[in-house]
Amino acid sequence: MAVIEAEQERGLANAMVPALGRVAQVKKETSDTFTLAVEPASAEPLAGFQPGQFSMLYVFGAGELPISISGDPQERSRLVYTVRSVGKLTQLLVSRKPGDVIGVRGPYGTHWPLKAARGKDVLIVAGGIGLAPLRPAIYHILRHRADYGRLIVLYGARSPRDLIYRRQIEEWARLPDAQVLATVDYGGVAWHGHVGVVTGLFRYVRLQPFHTVALICGPEIMMRYVIWELETRGLQPGDLHISLERNMKCGIGFCGHCQYGPNFLCKDGPIFPYHEIRSWFGKYEL
């Protein structure tokens, strides 16, 4: 009965059906973390993305997962994903061989505010695999270096063996105008770097409140303490941006799984300005 006008604008394409992507390369980052480069499996190019967005990756017959895009946004020919193998499906995903085809939907979600950050210092704080969705932002900043002030990257991992993109981190650390510090929870004898939680690195960093945008991704408890440290140092809640994680089945706001208070993480997030969600952030079992 009622004429459904929206349908005409949108078309009836089924957003739940993936495009096909061919795994071009699988790179081992750590014992359990791998980076997959995916190229289109047909003449149809894969959709471009904004730093911080994610895709839904489908393994034939096994299932589908939300995975952040971790590659260079400028590189149009392929999409890159860094996946930590923690369950059955991620195990299947990281064991794909070059030439294998997977399903790709997306990209979905909000992105890091790289436009709003122009002219300012950018502070990147990452924990563990949380560096993956931040790497496209780093690529972007390095490519448009003059558009931004200082680049500060603070990265925490469990142990030296768990640092991802290790060679790249060392390269970034050698760049002028960049301060890149890594810390680990457990050092071991061969480690000469920092030991301790990522907030321990703030004492080595000079931050300019009102002139710094912080992009944060890691375990929620880590982000909570990072935010506390940054607010203590005078950064404004609107300049803090965090990427959150919840269960997701559809990626487009229909399955209900990713709800976070009134937000659907898949479409209202995963990246939020902290001031927009501070009343929900840190609530136990939200």
């Binding site: 739940m16 489908y58 034939f60 017959g61 096994a62 299932g63 589908e64 089945k249 559809c250 229909f254 399955c255 209900g256 799984h257």
Partner: peptide, 26 residues
């Protein structure tokens, strides 16, 4: 209530698969 989950099924020979959407509950 509109929440759904997905279920993947595959044929015993491993060559066929289907993806279903089902009502889910929070």
């Amino acid at each position: 209530c509109f929440c759904t989950t997905v279920e993947d099924r595959s044929a015993v020979d491993g060559n066929g698969a289907e993806r279903l959407r089902k009502w889910d509950s929070c």
